[in-house]
Design a protein around this nucleic acid. Structure first.
Length: 485
RNA sequence: GCAGUUAUAGUACAGUCUGGUUAGUACUCGUGCUUGCCAAGUACGUGACCCGGGUUCAAAUCCCGGUAACUGCACCA
């Protein structure tokens, strides 16, 4: 299904909707999750924990969203996360100073240069607004971080633009107190904040968004000593280095030099296995190797995990080999020691990052799962059962003759074990359709026969098949069917 | 941030050009009846003109400003 259909479902069924929508000063780039969206998000994260965190023996932390100025001085975000921008005094169009100057006057000025250099180049080359020929004002730095004032003195601090800085600054304590050993993965789920110039398309470009980030700390001299590599050597990943993505096993990716070492190949492998289990069609995915111009300022090697949707390729995960960029910057700035012992060797660990955009991933799951079943005139959200916000609908065929009471009784026994939804009202077909739209894989219906022999019918979402089972079997059937793989 | 388009119930749309009675339709939603396993029927019901200002006897409708969404451009560390 396309963006429009997913949006309609999201609004009608409580997946997500605009923030503060009752007020006219609501800002762009802020959306909230409703009950169905939260259900899906929680289960997605549980799967992430199982498939990446627990599988690899990582630690998870939960850091502050507001962090001090020094953190971002050290991380480079105060300097590099800002673009030099120029604004036309006539038509208000905003451009990046470095790019506009390069295009018009063919002069390369690095984006980190002094602001005067841009102004001088603009004056000397008489650069005007390409749109209206108006004059540009002076160059300014536009920083994408939200600044906040702490306490009555309003001390300068920032909302984090990525979650991972807590992981870096916490690394020395965690390594010591948690008895760390390289390679060590530290993960965090939480919100990040970026003051985007033009937020667009609901969950796909937000100013406040969820990330699930993993930073794996490693000894840079032992990147090919990865025993776990055997687990994924035959896992197929799709890698794009130039025109087209090519399917290959992790082993082939390594041997052909497409992926630089076993360490990186291993994580690309388990990441693909994770996304396969979310129900996203990974045959429409690719790890796109980024060129020097596209890479973030901290990245040495970078692969974007992208998935094809009806609105084009979407970047869901950034995989960056950040080397010792972060730890050495924080060591220098804080004067703390970030080296650790790896066997008998003292090393400043390198970092491989798997930075996942949760909101975009959820959108992609919805788009890839939503089906129009024309034969039965219904929309079906074919989520993996373990990701569904509602595992099972508990329905009475009719309310009367004691069926309602019997249904309530079954619901009462089940509601703490599974995400169950009780529904008595309206035609049975309509209730099935509603459950189909929020992706509930099962519906249990109580009918007159139930009162005679204690059996119910259980209906499957995708096939619409029904079978009759004893009430005592419900628990074990559901447990087996909606459990995580 | 620029340009264009748009903004009416939970959703999708009509009405606005040409200001004027109770803002209409479909689906949805709630309650009853009916049927008794796949959006049926039936009756009743809930529910909306994006926000602010102006013009006018009178504004959902005209004008100005704001906000948001969509599309394109630019941006996306």
């Amino acid at each position: 299904m396309n963006y429009e259909e997913v949006m309609k479902l999201a609004l009608e069924r409580g997946f997500y909707f605009p923030s503060c929508e009752v007020y006219s000063d609501a800002n762009a780039g802020f959306w909230e999750y409703g009950p169905s969206g939260v259900g899906l998000k929680n289960k997605f994260l549980e799967l992430w924990r199982r498939e990446l965190i627990r599988r690899d023996g990582m630690m998870e932390i939960d850091g502050s969203q507001i962090m001090s100025k020094s953190v971002f001085e050290a991380s480079g975000h105060l300097g590099n996360f800002a673009d030099p921008i120029i604004k036309c005094t006539k038509c208000n169009s905003t451009y990046r100073a470095d790019r506009t100057i390069a295009e018009i006057a063919n002069i390369e000025i690095p984006e980190s240069a002094d602001l005067n250099e841009f102004d001088n180049a603009i004056n000397e080359n008489k650069i005007k607004c390409p749109k209206c020929k108006g004059d540009f004002g002076t160059t300014k730095k536009f920083n994408m971080m939200f600044k906040v004032g702490i306490g009555p003195q309003e001390e300068e601090a920032y909302l984090r633009p990525e979650t991972c800085q807590s992981i870096f600054v916490d690394f020395p304590r965690l390594f010591k107190t948690m008895r760390g050993k390289l390679p060590l993965g530290i993960a965090q789920v939480g919100k990040s904040f970026r003051n985007e110039i033009a937020p667009r398309q609901s969950l796909l470009r937000l100013r406040e968004f969820y990330q699930a980030e993993i930073e794996v700390f490693c000894n840079p001299r032992r990147l090919d000593e990865v025993e776990k590599f055997a687990e994924i050597e035959n896992t197929i990943i799709r890698v794009q280095t130039d025109a087209e993505p090519i399917s290959m096993t992790c082993k082939e990716a390594l041997e052909s030099g497409t992926v630089p070492n076993k360490f990186v190949a291993y994580y690309l492998g388990i990441l693909t296995e994770f996304y396969e289990k979310t129900g996203i069609d990974v045959s429409k995915s690719r790890f796109r190797k980024l060129g020097d111009k596209e890479k973030a300022f901290y990245a040495e090697v970078a692969f974007d995990f992208e998935v094809e949707t009806t609105i084009g390729w979407l970047e869901l995960v950034a995989c960056n080999y950040r080397s010792d960029y972060d730890l050495s910057s924080h060591a220098k700035m804080s004067k703390e020691k970030f080296e650790v012992m790896d066997n008998d060797e003292k090393v400043l660990p390198h970092v491989f990052e798997i930075s996942m955009g949760i909101d975009r991933s959820l959108y992609t799951i919805l788009e890839h799962s939503l089906k129009n079943d024309k034969e039965h005139e219904r929309m079906v959200l074919s989520l993996k059962p373990y990701l569904s916000p509602v595992h099972v609908g508990i329905l009475s065929l009719v309310k009367k003759d004691g069926l309602k009471e019997k249904t309530d009784e079954i619901f009462l026994n089940i509601k703490r074990k599974f995400d169950a939804f009780l529904d008595h009202s309206g035609a049975i077909g309509r209730r099935y359709r509603r459950l189909d739209e929020i992706g509930a894989p099962f519906a249990i219906t109580v009918d007159h026969q139930t009162l005679e022999d204690n059996t119910v019918t259980i209906r499957k979402r995708d096939s619409m098949e029904q079978s009759r089972v004893d009430i005592s079997k419900i628990d074990s059937i559901l447990l087996e069917s909606v459990g995580f793989p």
